[in-house]
Amino acid sequence: MQLNFKKSGQGKPLIILHGLFGSADNWMGIAKNLEEDYTLYLVDQRNHGDSPHSEEWNYEAMAEDLRELLDAEGLESVYLLGHSMGGKTAMKMALMYPKRVKKLVVADIAPRAYPVHHQTILKALNAVDPEKLKSRKEAEDILAQYIAERGIRQFLLKNLTRSEGGFAWKINLPVITQQIENVGEAIDSEKPFENPVLFMGGANSDYIQEKDKADIERIFPENHLVYIKNAGHWLHAEQPDAVVATLKAFLDA
C-alpha cells in the first residue's frame, strides 16, 4: 500500500508513526525541531489520515506498508519512531526487517497485549453521521455527549474533513470499529532485535509498567527506558522540549 507522508528536513532519515485515531500532523511540532539534522517522514498509517483504506488492518500489514515506503524512497535503513499504535507498528517492522532499522524509538507503549479500552470513543465517533452534518460544531456537540475532555474531542475532530455536500471521516471508522482488538495485540518474536531501542514513556502514564520490563529485555535487549516528567500518554504534546532533547540524545549517540 502506498502511504501518504510528509517529508521535510535534511540528513539521516527518521520515520515517525502516529497512534490510533491520529495522523502525520500529530508529530509536526516535534519534527520541526529535528529538521536540521534529519530527513523527516511523517506517515499516515493505513485507514488513517490521507492514506488508503483497507479491510486488512493489523500490525503485519502496517509493517509491510512501511517496508514498501522505504523501498519506494530508496531507504536501506532508517531511524524509526512510533507512538502508541505506531510504536507497535515500529516494533513489528524492526522484528520483521531488522536490517532496515538502525535505531528504534517506542513512545509510551510496551510489547504486551492491551485490553480494548476505546469503546466510548468509538461510540462517540459512530454517533456522528458526517453526511448529515451542517457544521463541525454540530459534530463536537455530539461527541461531547460521550467525551467530556475538550482536548480529546478536538483531537478526534481532526479526522473530520469536508466532502461533496458535507463532511466525511478520514479514518476508516467501520474497519477500526470492527477490528479494534487488533490494536491491542502483543508484539513478540523468538529472535530479538539487536540494535539500540529507546522506550520513552510518560511518567504520568501507565502504558509502560514495571511488569513490562521482562518482555522488553527479552525482545529488545539493547534497550533504554526513559520516563518524561510531567507527561502522560500524549508526551510529545505535553512535554515537546523534553521529548526532542531525549530523542536527540539517543539518536545522536
Rank of each mutant, 00 (worst) to 15 (best):
P52V: 06
K132N: 15
D215T: 06
E36T: 12
I142W: 14
S51C: 00
G29A: 08
A24L: 13
K88G: 04
F167S: 07
D108M: 00
P98Y: 04
N230V: 01
A186K: 12
D50W: 06
A94Y: 10
E56Y: 01
E76C: 00
Y97V: 11
V43Y: 02
K103A: 10
E73Q: 15
N26W: 12
I228P: 05
F220I: 11
E190N: 15
L3I: 06
E60W: 00
A61F: 01
Y41A: 08
L80I: 07
D129L: 10
G232E: 03
E194G: 04
F167N: 12
A253E: 14
E68T: 11
F167V: 11
F199K: 06
D44M: 05
Y38N: 00
I16L: 14
V175H: 04
Y114L: 12
L104Q: 03
Q45A: 14
I208Y: 02
N4D: 10
E140Q: 13
L225M: 05
I109A: 02
A113D: 08
L122A: 02
N126Y: 09
D50L: 13
V175A: 01
V243T: 11
G201P: 00
A124R: 10
L69I: 01
A127D: 11
K123V: 08
V128M: 05
A148L: 06
I152E: 01
G86L: 07
M96V: 06
H83P: 11
H117R: 14
P111Y: 11
H53V: 02
H53G: 02
A144L: 08
A90H: 03
V197T: 15
K12L: 13
D141R: 13
A90P: 10
A144Y: 06
I152F: 13
Y227C: 02
N172F: 08
Y59M: 11
E131T: 15
S77K: 13
S205G: 12
D108R: 01
A242E: 15
H236G: 08
Q154D: 13
K102W: 10
L125Q: 03
Q10N: 14
A168E: 14
A139C: 10
L14K: 03
M85T: 06
S54E: 09
A110V: 06
V105R: 02
G9N: 00
Q2Y: 11
K103D: 01
Y41G: 04
D108W: 09
R46L: 04
S205K: 07
D212P: 13
S77A: 15
G9V: 05
A31L: 01
I187C: 12
G19A: 12
E222T: 14
I187R: 06
N204P: 00
T161S: 15
L40E: 00
H118R: 02
H118P: 04
D215K: 13
Y114A: 09
A139T: 09
L81T: 14
I30P: 09
L122T: 03
R112L: 08
G184I: 00
A90V: 06
S77D: 15
L66K: 02
D44K: 03
A110F: 03
E36N: 15
E222C: 14
A72N: 10
G165W: 08
A113N: 10
V226P: 00
G232F: 03
G232M: 01
Y114M: 12
A245S: 14
K211C: 08
K123L: 05
A214M: 09
S8G: 06
A203R: 12
K229I: 04
I171Q: 05
E140K: 14
M93Q: 11
Y59G: 07
L173W: 11
A139P: 09
K123T: 01
L251N: 00
N26Y: 04
